[in-house]
Design a protein around this nucleic acid. Structure first.
Length: 115
DNA sequence: GCATTGACGAAGG
DNA sequence: CCCTTCGCCAATG
């Protein structure tokens, strides 16, 4: 799989922001996209995460969920339960594939890191 | 090069 | 919170 110069740069930015997410906090694909200035391309953030598996250092992709706090990407982990396990280790409660207190745990890079 | 797909988002129901 | 429709854009067939 080869990435174009465009996506390669985009991917790196996504990985970088995701690694900055504090332990025990979560964010959304859209928030990351907005922070990177590609607001409408939230799908591309998800695509970037898809490539985060073989990336080093490891990207805490489990801290990235959709706008509803739902673990939509759990199926793409090593095992369908891996994502919830990692979240549980960070004291993040997950119920019915959705992060509880999502609004309280939400970490917006635009707000936390500034524009 | 067109059609389909997708770890999304907003709005309306 | 779930469902549908539409917009979004790179990758893939």
């Amino acid at each position: 799989m080869q990435y174009t110069a465009k996506t390669n740069d985009f991917f790196q930015n996504v990985f970088d922001v995701v690694r900055l997410i504090p332990k025990g906090r979560v964010t959304s694909y859209g928030a990351i996209a907005k922070y990177l200035g590609t607001g409408g391309s939230s799908r591309m953030v998800g695509w970037a995460m898809n490539a985060s598996h073989h990336v080093k250092p490891k990207v805490p992709a489990h801290r990235v969920v959709n706008r509803n706090g739902m673990l939509t990407g759990k199926a793409h982990f090593e095992t369908p339960t891996k994502m919830q396990e990692l979240l549980a280790k960070e004291k993040i409660k997950v119920k019915n594939e959705t992060v509880l207190d999502f609004e309280k745990l939400f970490w917006d890079p635009v707000i936390e890191l500034g524009l």
